[in-house]
Design a protein around this nucleic acid. Structure first.
Lengths: 260, 260
DNA sequence: GGTTGACCTTGACGCGACGTCAACGTGTCT
DNA sequence: AGACACGTTGACGTCGCGTCAAGGTCAACC
């Protein structure tokens, strides 16, 4: 039997057979006078056994180990381990499909590509043409919802809901304007303290807790939802010094409030 | 923000970020004076969106296409296609686990590594120390069962059951000896015809049908169980000319029998 | 005898999503 | 001044083969 016949008999490509020779998974058979490989029935049996196990998902390295010491004992162990791996993979795929389904459902009702209608509403409410701060806030919220997955996003939407009510919203947009006005100001500008106080008044206790929880110093380890914290520094880096001062004073006020 | 902070914030490695730059999935940000990449919040948002989709299993090429034209329409198509792929993969894994479970169950009761107790019985019954023919038969059966999967193996066991009964078995082993005796004989040896007749007498109708079905010429396409046919030639190649003559006459008799 | 075409040989690159190492520059702390 | 953590580019390794490339072998047909 030549290599093409062997491959056809077992149902693989000749490349596969040569690959198995190359990695030592199948022994090289004797050669004919012209250099062609000459296979016997026993080679076909060996190849079929290899394929039988490979189809199940064992790696070729594992196969070589298993077939080397034809023990049958550690083969069972390997197969059980493989089954556990496959089970884990099944769960992972199921989880992916669940997230996918949630995403698709939200894409059907929502306006944007990846967010729910609720999230789209929040972002629309916070938009204020030409405001750098509104844009920053929107980016932070988008980031939080993209990183937390579906449950993270709905948590964000839930937290932000109080801010989207019409009367509250108008005051919030005014705060954006006042922050924007501080763009070129000094960190000691008299408007800073008052603005921080007004901002704190707009932030609910739940929002304050979430913000503080996710901005703890690295030693404590972040929450599972937003993995890397230090978003405060990131955010501050996008502001001018006066605006960053407002942010610092705001966080101080929030920490005082939650510690009481 | 430098690359390490960005990576920590989103929860990936710096290598991943640079990889995304390299393949054009994320735009290269501005550089600081020292050559370091300088990231803004918007970059973190883009990266988080990429990861959100990548976690679902989209390839980076697909991601680039999707994010290029931020349409939202073909994104849904891609996600639905992805869901279908994942569903297929789930089925494939389930099938693998089913075969694995069958194999494990058989390994628990069987003697050998990969076969059921029934198959082990058949092979033990057909063993005859020093007989080349018994060995060939065992190899053929092993090959058939390894290639057909669990259902193929049980089919083989079912087919061979009549041969494993004690009185039939003794006659079969005698046939092996007579075949072995023909090793150095001439193809025209007078014993050939009688041996073919006796062999035909030992083969049940079901076995004859299976043998003929799986030895049709390549034009007709083999059965789904044993993919490559022409096993007859393979088998004949392992014999001497007189033994091959017996095989040819045997197949002729079987064909006559099933055509009536 | 020449040609075609199917088969065989070895050798090498490609894929996908990064991990990992090399060799080097930069910035901060002691 | 040295240690150390970070950044830079570049290149190789992973896994199971598919797919050329550049030939040699053999049977069949003109």
């Amino acid at each position: 039997m030549r290599i093409g016949e062997l491959a056809a008999l077992v149902g693989v490509s000749t490349r596969t057979v040569r690959h198995y020779h190359h990695i030592g998974l199948l022994p090289e058979p004797a050669r004919q006078a012209n250099g062609y490989r000459e296979y016997r029935l026993a080679d076909a049996v060996a190849l079929a056994r290899v394929r039988q196990l490979a189809r199940l998902g064992l790696s070729l390295d594992e196969l070589r180990d298993v077939l080397a010491d034809d023990d049958g004992r550690d083969l069972r162990e390997m197969l059980q381990e493989l089954d556990a791996d496959l089970a884990r993979e099944q769960e992972a795929i199921a989880a992916r499909r669940a997230r996918l389904a949630a995403l698709l459902a939200r894409a059907d009702e929502g306006s944007g590509a990846l967010m729910s209608a609720g999230m789209a509403d929040v972002l629309r409410g916070l938009s204020l043409d030409g405001s750098r701060f509104a844009e920053l806030d929107r980016q932070m919220l988008t980031l939080a919802s993209a990183m937390g997955g579906p449950e993270g996003e709905s948590a964000v939407v839930e937290l932000m809901r109080p801010l989207t009510e019409p009367d509250t919203l108008a005051g919030g947009l005014d705060l954006y304007r006042r922050l924007d006005d501080l763009a070129g100001a000094d960190p000691d500008d008299p408007r800073v303290a008052g603005l921080a106080a007004d901002l704190a008044g707009h932030i609910t206790d739940a929002m304050a807790s979430a913000m503080i929880e996710n901005s703890r110093d690295p030693a404590a380890g972040g929450s599972p939802v937003t993995d890397g914290d230090r978003w405060l520094e990131t955010l501050a880096g996008e502001m001018t010094s006066a605006q960053a001062a407002v942010l610092r004073q705001l966080m101080e006020r929030l920490r005082e409030r939650t510690s009481c």
